[in-house]
Design a protein around this nucleic acid. Structure first.
Lengths: 139, 139
DNA sequence: CTTGACCTTCCCATGATGGGAAGGTCTATA
DNA sequence: TATAGACCTTCCCATCATGGGAAGGTCAAG
């Protein structure tokens, strides 16, 4: 398989496949006489693993660790679980942060007439001047 | 006020104040004879506005637009509301995405013994081989 | 006058990805 | 067989918002 075929087989762009190779996340594959990269089932399998881990929001570093654990027959599954649990916590922190933003913005948008009048509680809040809104400020 | 004083008065790092100036988000302030930037109440006000908008997750571009609307006395507040609503939608999309990841990961972690046995449903799922977990795959 | 805490500009790095140029290769068709 | 066009290769640059650090100037306190 060409890099293009490996790409469409895995959903990882050719650009990213080369990048993953350059940073050592995946091994350099064999080359044809004309210097084309050649991928087989094993490589495609690894790329799918990487793709899935990235889709789940693992960083490339975490993906590298998971990949190592995957290929290590003597691994302890507790180690993997720990990474997953840590990742869940990080995701939940991020979610809470975004939800805080949404809450504040919804409140502001609700208080904002949205018509042609220049008075705008959203801008007032951003400016730190809002006498109207019970602002959810964090300062 | 020095850039350092403006920084601690607003929570925006000196680095970022200079950066915001360089990209035209904020205006270049006056300088002392020895080329130090000098900030007054107006500038601090603008920086606080920027800080708040960034904290709420608006991009620098969106912040620039909001800043323009803030300083435009003839603005329509509907325009601001539209930006806020659009931003809320983007945040909610992101939240849903992260929640999907959390859901899948929690399911996997729950199914993972986390002990010393090498069998690990998390890795099996990442590898696309899991016969155990009812995977929440999107492919 | 020295010391240390500021300030200035300039360049580089991050993380993950895409864009694009310049040049080589392969395949189908005219 | 020649050519077109769809691949491949490497290399450099851009993104977005932020921080690090070097090299050099300035200011205030001791």
């Amino acid at each position: 398989m060409n890099i293009g075929e490996a790409s469409s087989a895995t959903g990882v762009s050719a650009k990213m496949i080369r990048y993953y190779e350059s940073i050592g996340l995946i091994r350099a594959p064999l080359r044809t006489g004309s210097n084309y990269r050649v991928y087989g089932d094993d490589e495609v399998h690894v790329l799918r693993f990487v793709k899935r881990a990235r889709t789940l929001g693992f960083s490339v570093d975490e993906t590298a660790t998971l990949l190592g654990l995957w290929q290590d027959k003597s691994r302890a599954s507790g180690e993997v679980k720990d990474i997953a649990i840590g990742h869940i916590a990080a995701l939940e922190t991020k979610i809470a942060e975004l939800q805080g933003m949404v809450k504040t913005l919804k409140h502001l948008a609700h208080c904002c007439g949205g018509d042609k009048r220049p008075d705008c509680p959203i801008l007032d809040d951003l400016a730190g001047e809002g006498p109207i809104t019970n602002r959810y400020r964090d300062d």
